[in-house]
């Protein structure tokens, strides 16, 4: 029952801003596809074209062979969309919102209860509360329930975890995984790079361009160079000093340490780096080999395209 998405040469301009610059990619049936990118990358524009809310200037989008422009009526039967901004009725209760959306799709809460059971159970204690009075995480779960109420074949989620606490984010992704197991194709966007690892395939989006489409593992495997994490007693000046270090391709803050990428052999870099820092009178120098995570890869990609 799941569907695939085929996107070809998509272009969208708003006045003189090019929101989407010739984007093409495919989402496989039943996969969890993530689009990672900072604010303003064009994620929402892409999703709004995909969900038939706006028209693209060029290119086409097919969902399971359905053209989103010509056959938008068919599309709207099989798609579940959760906009980035909470879009349910704040003055209706949790239950009223669900019933409302169920009835629009000519179905009922009980008819599709098994699909949303896992999510709905979490918000059921608050079913008589107004949607506007829910916490951020609860709102997202309600929105997800509403987007699923008609058993969609494709679920499109625009930054569902933005503004949600870490625990709720984790829970939310677990829910998405469950939906995927039920055969729903899921397209999700997020500004959080750590969430990329949870997708089957991810693409990095940046100022209207798709930088890379691959599995998270492949993206990590494609990382070029050696990655070192550096820590010293004085972290304040460390970044600017490291930028002047000869063997450094890229230097950036990463959590509590500073990551340094170098193309030179690892032992040689480590040694010269230690010397370099000692001359600069740093103490408690810790230099560690690091396996790159997806965030390192994206930072590398962004830098390569000259957008960071």
């Amino acid at each position: 029952m799941s569907v695939n998405i085929h996107i070809e040469h998509l272009v969208k301009k708003f006045q003189d801003v090019e929101a989407l610059k010739d984007i093409s990619f495919d989402v496989e049936k039943g996969s969890l596809f993530g689009i990672i990118g900072p604010d303003g990358a064009g994620k929402t524009t892409l999703f709004r074209i995909l969900t038939s809310l706006i028209l693209a200037d060029e290119g086409k989008v097919m969902v399971d062979g359905i053209d989103v422009v010509k056959d938008y009526k068919k599309l709207r039967q099989i798609i579940g969309y959760m906009p980035g901004r909470f879009s349910l009725y704040m003055d209706l209760t949790v239950e009223e919102n669900l019933n409302f959306y169920a009835r629009i799709f000519h179905t009922s809460l009980s008819e599709n209860y098994d699909l949303i059971k896992d999510i709905y159970e979490q918000i059921e204690p608050f079913k008589n509360r107004r949607a506007g009075d829910l916490s951020g995480g609860m709102k997202q779960k309600l929105a997800l329930s509403c987007a699923l109420i008609h058993k969609p074949k494709l679920l499109v989620l625009d930054e569902p975890t933005t503004g949600v606490d870490a625990v709720s984010r984790k829970e939310f992704w677990e829910l998405l995984k469950k939906m995927q197991q039920r055969g729903i194709t899921i397209l999700v966007s997020t500004p959080y790079m750590d969430e990329a690892a949870l997708c089957d395939r991810v693409s990095l989006m940046q100022t209207g361009n798709l930088l890379s489409v691959n599995t998270p593992q492949q993206i990590v495997n494609n990382f070029l160079g050696n990655l070192l994490a550096v820590k010293t007693n004085n972290m304040y000046t460390l970044l600017s000093d490291l930028e002047r270090f000869d063997g450094a391709d890229r230097v950036y803050r990463f959590g509590e340490s500073i990551h340094l990428v170098s193309q030179r052999p690892i032992d040689e870099v480590k040694q010269s780096l230690r010397d370099f820092l000692s001359i600069k009178a740093y103490q408690k120098i810790e230099i560690e080999n690091k396996q790159p995570v997806i965030e390192d890869c994206f930072l590398a990609l962004m830098e390569k395209t000259g957008t960071l």
Partner: peptide, 13 residues
């Protein structure tokens, strides 16, 4: 303004 129309527009209504 509050965005509820966005979700409604994607439905077959």
């Amino acid at each position: 303004e509050i965005g509820t129309i966005e979700q409604l527009n994607v439905t077959p209504i």
